[in-house]
Amino acid sequence: MTAPIYQVEGLVIDLYTPTVSVRAVDGAGFHVAPGETLAIVGESGSGKTVMTLGPLGLLPEGVAVDLRGTARADGKDILAMSPAELSRLRGGFFGVIFQDPMSALNPMLKIGPQLAEQARRFAGLSAAEACKEAVSLLARSGIPDPEDRYDRYPHELSGGMLQRAMIALALAARPRVLIADEPTTALDATVQAQILALIRQIQKEDGIAVILITHDIGAVSVLADRVAVLYAGQVAEEGSAIDVLTAPVHPYTRGLLASVPDFRSDSASGTKEIPGIPPNQAQLEAGCRFADRCDRVQPQCNTRRPRLQTVGMGVVPHRVACPVVIAAEGIVTHD
């Protein structure tokens, strides 16, 4: 296996507003290697965005933040970096695609010049080279007639085209890690399929690492090599996409997958629901965060916090934080 290019361990992120403090990330971690796509899956509020972007200094505005743990990009400790170094890293090493393209694009500027500026600043191109690069980025992102679109303002593009323009923007600095935060949530299935295919193609061509943040199991199944399932700021289960999506062990992962119908499967897949809602992260209780919604809950779940244990024999470690199911189903662990 290739060594990870972005690696986060034991991350704890506390957010404070004047009225509440929230443990948004509670001892979670993940890693991604060049050429690999990691999907971070979980319901809204589970901490996906904060966990992935927080170490890069991209944190919610207007809240006080306390962040601990380790985070390395290309072997360098990014939590020890100065704001200037971090900003350079964000612009160059990492490329970020957000759910809402308008949060990344300046509505007052034409698309092309925004791309060119990014390429000039972070990929070190001359103004003339950067302009050419912008056109080729638009073309590469599947935007028809890129010379024409170069001179368009963001509001003149359709939703799908805007998403492509933002991908072009994220690629302008030639990143080595592309982070896509819910890139297709607001799009039609037809356009979503196009965007996912585009991300896959870019990754193949450039051999970059991709982190896909999503609550859409379908998108995970299209793109991911590995999956980390996040629940209430903690990793419940992680492993290869095939292990996690076809042989899930954690009751939350199982519940999540059972709530997604698969109309191509003959077996009645259905829309089973997980009762209840995620816990209030302002109240930190001992024990498993999933306990009050779990159909396998045991008395000890409320007092002992489960840790990730490696199950199965796959090349890609499959790790699960549920001692109850592991014991009840006689699953062999080795670590």
Binding site: D188, A189, T190, G218, V220, I242, D262
Partner: peptide
Amino acid sequence: AVPSPNPV
């Protein structure tokens, strides 16, 4: 266009 939740 609707992906299958099963990666296989």
